[in-house]
């Protein structure tokens, strides 16, 4: 979780010499620089994609710029026309409901009730695939999809980059 490190380094004033980066920013940079070449032509059937903006990465982490990079990468990988955004999004996105340790806390009813908002949000996009670049989100989105009868597939981003990879 991005914020655990970025905020922890700041709050506890932990000395370090490295620079802390998000893989999402790097994917985008590598694609822009031509070091990572992707081709969306595999998506002939027009599979429609949307994304989850993780709170800890976007709102509490880097902000809209990383959400924009996430969209940039997804559009390159699945085809611009196959991306459909959720509302609200980016820094103003809804938490999936799995954050803050909710997946581990055991209050399943509450967690799913909370996740209903997220479910409706994704359902409204009509997407076939929800990309979740955070493990917590991934587990929760899988769970609410199953719980409320969603029709989408929940995946990480790297699977699709791998699919579109040109070597």
């Amino acid at each position: 979780m991005y914020y655990v490190v970025s905020e922890g380094l700041r709050r506890f004033n932990i000395p370090h010499t490295f620079e802390f980066l998000s893989i999402i920013n790097l994917y985008a940079r590598w694609i822009r620089e031509g070091r990572l070449v992707v081709d969306s032509s595999w998506n002939k059937e027009g599979l429609r994609f949307t994304v989850q903006d993780p709170c800890k990465l976007v709102r509490q982490g880097i902000g809209d710029s990383v959400a924009d990079d996430l969209r940039f990468v997804v559009k390159k990988v699945v085809g611009e026309e196959n991306f459909v955004d959720v509302w609200p999004n980016k820094s103003n996105n809804y938490c999936c409901g799995g954050g803050g340790g909710a997946l581990q806390s055991g209050f399943v009813k509450n967690r799913r009730h909370y996740g209903r908002t997220k479910f409706d949000q994704f359902a409204a996009t009509g997407a076939d695939v929800v990309i979740t670049p955070c493990h917590n989100c991934h587990s929760q989105v899988l769970d609410i999809c199953k719980e409320f009868g969603g029709k989408w597939q929940t995946t990480h981003l790297w699977n699709w980059i791998e699919k579109a990879l040109v070597r």
Binding site: W87, P88, N92, D120, A124, G126
Partner: peptide
């Protein structure tokens, strides 16, 4: 808190 486009339905 937020204004969003009304979803279909």
């Amino acid at each position: 808190h937020s204004i969003i486009p009304a979803p279909h339905g």
